[in-house]
Amino acid sequence: MTSTYVATLELAAGAVLLSAVMTLWRRSVSSIVAMLRLQGVALCAVAVDLALHENDRALLVTGALVLVVKGVVVPTVLRRVAKWDPRSRESRPLVNVPASLVFAAGLIVLSYVVGTRITSLSPDDATRLAPLGLATVLVGYFMLVTRRRAVSKIVGLIVVDNGIALVTFLLTSGVPLIVELGSSLDVMLVVVVLQFLMASVRHHSRIDALTELRELRD
């Protein structure tokens, strides 16, 4: 039983990180969103696995919530938003794809080094994997910085959020419910805000992509 739990946990957590790296690798917006969906599902798997292992009903609910929000709602909304954008590919990232992947590898190593320092406090099966979450955060952030398209940026932001959620699950087996609720709620609200923004900009129809906006400057 334990070994299944550990194997599932490792697989799911690895999937979260892998899908984060995949978002860096792929260019077409639709496949990036698909990766995001995969990541949501993997995250849900982590939560459910932990919940079953610890008999934590609240965490089970959280897992369900994650599946709904991150596996279904967010990618769907994003797909809709992406339709507004005529150029569906991330054509000119600030750092090109191969370099990004090399950089991501470096970030993963860094998070491993840093992560072990943190997890050494209580090195159990779940906590051990926390560096994977940290790496997801860094990779997501890297995407946020280097990808120009609005949708890519939102994806990066959500990857960061997912990474944090992964760290949260692994380190604490879920913080008190209200926080988790808040966090999921928040991601959803962020998406709503973003959709609103995109729509508004479309409405004004003068600027193609939000990220091209550089009117406000010193």
Partner: peptide
């Protein structure tokens, strides 16, 4: 110094990314 604030969101985000890396390395 005006170049620090050139309107590019990428640059602004990069400031934070650098800070994050620095925290992880130093912390």
């Amino acid at each position: 110094a005006r170049r620090l604030q050139n309107g590019s969101l990428d640059r602004y985000l990069a400031f934070g990314f650098g800070a994050l890396i620095a925290i992880l390395v130093v912390g």
